[in-house]
Write a protein that binds this DNA or RNA. Sequence first.
DNA 1: ACCACATGTGCGCTATAACGCACAAGAGGA
DNA 2: TCCTCTTGTGCGTTATAGCGCACATGTGGT
Lengths: 181, 181
Amino acid sequence: MTQDDITLKLRDVRAASGLSLSKVAEMTGVSKAMLGQIERGESSPTIATLWKIAKGFQLPLSALIGSSVLRDPTDESLFRTVTFPGSIEVKIVFPYDPVLGAETFHVDLAPNQSHESAAHAAGVTEEVFVLNGSLEILRDGEWVPLQSGQGLRFAADLPHGYRAGPQGAAFLNMHHYGQAG
Amino acid sequence: MTQDDITLKLRDVRAASGLSLSKVAEMTGVSKAMLGQIERGESSPTIATLWKIAKGFQLPLSALIGSSVLRDPTDESLFRTVTFPGSIEVKIVFPYDPVLGAETFHVDLAPNQSHESAAHAAGVTEEVFVLNGSLEILRDGEWVPLQSGQGLRFAADLPHGYRAGPQGAAFLNMHHYGQAG
DNA sequence: ACCACATGTGCGCTATAACGCACAAGAGGA
DNA sequence: TCCTCTTGTGCGTTATAGCGCACATGTGGT
């Protein structure tokens, strides 16, 4: 999963096409010297050049880097706990999937604990479903109260926040990022 | 579609975490100056540094390079109960949104009640998160047991089914339809 | 007001990605 | 053999990725 994989991927892609370094250089706009160095692992390309290569082959970027899109839904290693230092602790329920453009977290807030989040990129939508306790969501500058079993969907490209009630709160947090190309 | 998306993704990921550049620099090993330049689109990172960032966030590389399409997030939800004739009764938690291509149901199954579903259209993905009781999901001709608090994601373009345990089951059911654009 | 601390950005420097060009090795052809 | 063409790699230069450090701004505390 390191950048060595890119060397392998590029070698495979070019071998499959049967093209020479010169031809690939011509159709991608990347010098054949650089292509050779990347294949030999002597250079770590920037994403800009990687993009040029992928575009030249008319392939998605994912075809050159590892991280296959196929996932085993029962792979427990994907369902780990991620702790943001000095921030909240979340458990990944459904890991980010580039095809769906969505991920789901399980969040536990201590009594009266709050978490503020800055605006995300435009087009990001969040969904919150309260599992236990009571929760307030800051949306459009207004705190919306939610009880267990209730859900709220809101645009996340504005500042927003979460605030647990006196008995704490557990909730699911789905992020929708839009679709992958 | 271009590498500018990486700036968006990184901004988004960091905003979601609520962390400062310094904290991210500390946990990724990438200087905060470089992180800032990447976010502002003033620098095109190498895959080596991109990898360090993804690893620091415990995310796959695709979470950072996946191209995102800007969308208008529509709002507001109608919470109603829909009964499928001769089938199970579900409550709409998040109604279908053509922009997201997703909808979420709240399903209650009586003890030992089962529900079989024919194959959906290609590209449809379902996610199930068990709220109460025990549930078994028929996936790839195999019944996968789930307990309260567990989730399962699976492709729904194959026949699948749900079967509650002896004490019944309540679960959330998210449907992701293929990208509309 | 003042201070202490954290935030994000700008500056100068070094490491290296990326280029154009030239070269050595091999394959055919006459 | 000699020539020509193409293969991939090495060299010297330029562009820039990446670093550490310092600065301007902001925010909360006393």
